[in-house]
């Protein structure tokens, strides 16, 4: 499997993401936001950071980058696309995922570990987890408050497109365990087809026991596993 990590001016989790992909044995390459053509990749990842200084709105300028046209086409063709943190914000701005990420209700940048409940273990990205499993993964964002209109929110829940939810140690999605005011404690969602995942927490920062958690590894191994079974392409 060959993965593209798309970098924008102001991306700052690109190397972590690159290393995470390498760690699970996949090939990985950086793609600068002005480059075109993603055909040689089997998955595309948008890293966290502060693309364009979060000017105007987080992700709003990055989504106008030349490469985003290719990301949209890649996703439309069914290719797996993962957006983490600022990557999630860019995917929403680009219309690949519904809704928007607004300023945290607490008005503070939140940088700490959170607990996530895995809501779906049958996506391209979560096969190595179990439904209901609790993961410890860090967040680091000022704008992670997921909002959408009523109809969209109902569709997200109704179609089971919420993949990760902020929870407490008992696995309950309480107000206290919600770090940013996201509706229904949403931490990660997919598009309707299921091939685009956006999440605010940083699985690429939970890859080493030495650094506190290895709960992010499963996301990357899941993707490798689902691509090797479906495509049977280059390993």
């Amino acid at each position: 499997m060959k993965v593209a990590v798309v970098t924008f001016p102001g991306s700052n989790c690109d190397y972590d993401l690159y290393k995470a992909v390498q760690q699970v044995g996949a090939e990985v390459e950086f793609v600068w936001h002005r480059e075109r053509g993603l055909q040689r990749f089997e998955a595309v990842m948008l890293p966290g950071g502060f693309s364009y200084g979060d000017y105007l709105r987080a992700g709003a300028i990055a989504r106008m980058s030349p490469v985003m046209e290719d990301v949209v086409a890649f996703a439309a063709a069914g290719g797996p696309v993962l957006g983490i943190c600022n990557g999630f914000q860019i995917l929403c701005e680009a219309g690949l995922l519904p809704g928007a990420l607004m300023r945290n209700d607490v008005l503070r940048f939140r940088s700490h570990d959170v607990l996530l409940r895995v809501e779906r273990d049958d996506t391209l990205f979560t096969g190595d987890y179990e439904k209901g499993q609790i993961l410890r993964i860090p967040i680091a964002h000022g704008e992670g408050n997921f909002e959408a209109d009523e109809e969209t929110l109902r569709a997200l829940e109704g179609d089971g497109r919420v993949v990760f939810r902020y929870v407490d140690a008992n696995g309950e999605a309480t107000e206290a365990s919600n770090p940013n005011g996201s509706w229904h404690n949403i931490a990660g969602i997919t598009n309707e087809a299921g091939n685009v995942l956006g999440m605010m927490p940083h699985p690429e920062r939970a890859m080493e026991a030495l650094l506190g958690s290895t709960d992010g590894v499963g996301l990357f191994t899941s993707l490798v596993a689902s691509l090797s079974t479906t495509a049977g392409g280059s390993a």
Partner: peptide, 10 residues
């Protein structure tokens, strides 16, 4: 209707 945390703080 949307929460405006900045407005709330001000």
């Amino acid at each position: 209707g949307l929460l405006d945390p900045q407005g709330k703080a001000i």
